[in-house]
Nucleic acid binder design. Structure first.
Lengths: 146, 146
DNA sequence: GTTCTTGCAAAGGATTTGCAACCCA
DNA sequence: TGGGTTGCAAATCCTTTGCAAGAAC
């Protein structure tokens, strides 16, 4: 992959935005670049503190809403009070393992939820279809376990 | 099951509280009775509106925290902005199917998450153990599907 | 040029906290 | 009785909204 001198690498932000059919503003590119460089899902506060250049909080909330609807960003929740956001990866639908002590997150793939959904559909009387799911694992990371 | 005349059936609230090692106050018994009679997980607002006699909101938040720590109440989240609370059933670890349109909830059992947790543990480098999980299914109920 | 987006400031909600009175063990 | 709990009121925190200025297409 090549990049022109003086042009900051933007992690395909512009392209992602165009493909999703939303305007590629400076702020949106900055947000996507930020989320692409952090390797942990981020809170709104972390985004606020970390994005360069600074973006207004109202804008961040509005962007997250729009980019979520557009399928570019995924919202996750570890029951810690704050929602987290990460870039969604359409190729690989991953889930998370969360350390209950330090909140460190690692990803994993291979939640074969269709089987469970099938089981569930047989049990519940009132449902026509199931089309999405959330699944998170909680435990203790090696560092915290010492 | 028998109940004495004049003594309102309390759904074992007193006993549950004692077993969990927390004080059995009037408010806590009322909360447990309320959650035992509703068959859908409740928001704080619903609890506030529904509990008899009335309980202060600060007290409700404090109780939910304490009863959660004590293992009597479970907090769940369907990404709709508000957390929900239900009595936890130590015998039967169930999960939920949620209608994305009307928010109706049904329970199901048989998420055999151990297998997935095992898969996950092999993939993630930094985790020592996994001991809990969250799992929710989202779909459309029959009524809303018509 | 028109429409969508942003920043600012203020509003709105949800949740938490300090403290005195109260209740359970 | 004594420490845990509650109710009230106020504070705090998170999120949303109105609107005028600015940026994208």
């Amino acid at each position: 992959m090549q990049r022109e001198l003086g042009v900051p690498f933007d992690y395909g932000a512009e392209e992602r935005l165009r493909e999703a059919g939303v305007r590629a503003t400076k702020q949106r590119r900055a947000l996507i670049m930020f989320l692409a460089t952090t390797h942990q899902p981020q809170t709104v506060q972390q985004i606020l503190d970390g994005v360069q250049p600074r973006i207004d909080q109202a804008t961040i909330y509005r962007m997250l809403q729009i980019l979520r609807d557009a399928g570019l960003v995924r919202q996750i929740d570890f029951y810690r009070g704050n929602l987290l956001y990460e870039l969604s990866d359409p190729m690989l639908d991953h889930h998370h393992v969360v350390c209950k002590r330090c909140s460190r997150v690692e990803d994993f793939v291979g939640c074969d939820y269709e089987k469970i959904a099938e089981t569930a559909l047989k049990q519940v009387r009132g449902f026509a279809a199931i089309d999405s799911h959330s699944f998170e694992l909680f435990g203790v990371c090696k560092e915290c376990a010492q």
